[in-house]
Computed example of a mutant assay.
Amino acid sequence: MAARNLKGPEHVTLDDEGTEGTSMRNSRHRARAVVAVAAAALTGLATLTACDASGGDEAAPNGPTAQDRAHRKAEPVWDTSPRSVAAVGDSITRGFDTCSVLSDCPEASWATGSDSEVRSLAQRLLGKRRAATHSWNHAKTGARMADLPGQMERAAAHRPDLVTVMVGANDACRSSVDEMTPVAEFRADFEDALGTLRDERPRAQVYVLSVPDLKRLWSEGRTNQLGKQVWKLGICKSMLADADAMDAAAVARRAAVRERVVAYNAVLKEVCAKDLRCRYDGDAVFDFRFGTDLLSHWDWFHPSKEGQARLAEMAYEGVTSRRP
């Protein structure tokens, strides 16, 4: 649905930021690996000592075994009532083309907006007054996954209880299929972004929304003649170019884009599952059967206010659910 754009749909041509160097990212990965190995060694030593003190694996007379305590400590903890929210991502989270043409409209953002018609996630969780002072939007129109580590660093500076993530559509929305972000790079950048947050906020919760189904967006929007004219300006060319073409090459191109989006969502799910305080939406956004009434009538690509409100509702249900 509707936006380094629907990046839950975005204007791909708007992203001209540079991305972080591979060597710097690899250095951070190596540093985190060293810390992780050291922590594992210390944990193993502590567990061994505890077992020796209690007589191996048998339960201590007056309490649980060290194994029981370790199991409880490893259980995921999810607070359904966070007291602050930071948002990272792309143009969808910035409310692009929601209020006026070719403009961000952060007040209508599903994540942190103040518009009463949208009732953003922040307002639903915090209330209108607290949301005004305890929610922050660091998403950027045109952003791709490679931009997420930098956004996450800025979000972490607020020390939020919850960080929302919605990014990836711009990685698939390129000038051609060949220019889509490789899945391995997408994974590395997402892991780097989560690592950046964990360096500063180890206990912050992360709620990750899936990348929208761009092929459904094409299927819905192509019924509108004005929308197709707007698409000719260059929006998501990998999917939306030649919207009426049904030859073998066009069909294969759209299928390739959809397959890449599915692969991106698999990465989001897998990487998030390794973090005890990360929750994925279970493909809720990808599977949502949206119609043209939920798309911006400025571009038939980004969410309208109604679409933003639906995203806020879906995110609220995911964050406040007792179970993922």
Rank of each mutant, 00 (worst) to 15 (best):
K140G: 03
R72L: 11
T80Q: 14
G56Y: 09
R119L: 11
S135E: 14
F96Y: 15
V101W: 09
A139I: 09
V101L: 15
K73Y: 11
A74D: 13
T133S: 07
A36Q: 10
P106D: 07
L48C: 12
S91V: 03
R124I: 02
A38W: 05
T47Q: 06
E107A: 10
F96G: 00
S109T: 12
A39R: 14
S54Y: 04
I92H: 04
G142Y: 02
D52I: 12
T49Q: 14
A36V: 05
A122N: 05
T98M: 08
A111L: 05
W136H: 15
A132D: 07
S100V: 05
R129A: 15
G56P: 01
S91K: 05
L42R: 07
A50G: 13
D79K: 11
L121N: 01
F96W: 06
V118R: 02
E58C: 09
G95K: 02
T98F: 01
D97A: 00
L126H: 00
V77I: 13
S116M: 08
S120Y: 02
R83Y: 03
V85S: 00
E107G: 06
E75K: 08
Q67H: 13
H134T: 01
A122C: 11
A74Q: 06
W110P: 00
A108V: 10
H71E: 14
V118T: 01
D104T: 08
T80K: 12
F96V: 06
E117W: 06
P106N: 15
W110I: 07
G95E: 13
V118M: 01
T65G: 15
R83G: 09
G89L: 04
P106G: 06
G142N: 06
G55M: 06
V85F: 02
R94L: 11
T93G: 05
S114E: 09
R130N: 08
R72I: 08
V101I: 13
P82E: 03
A74C: 05
C51W: 14
R72W: 09
T80P: 03
A66P: 00
V118G: 00
D57L: 15
S103Y: 15
H71D: 14
A36Y: 01
A46R: 11
A41S: 12
G142D: 03
S116P: 04
T43I: 11
A132F: 06
S120I: 07
A74I: 07
L102V: 10
A70G: 02
P76V: 09
S135F: 07
N62F: 12
G44S: 13
C105D: 04
T80F: 02
V85W: 00
R130K: 15
C105N: 04
P61C: 05
A122D: 01
S91N: 08
R119E: 00
Q123S: 06
A74K: 13
T80W: 11
A59P: 09
W136C: 07
V77P: 03
E117M: 11
G63F: 07
G127N: 04
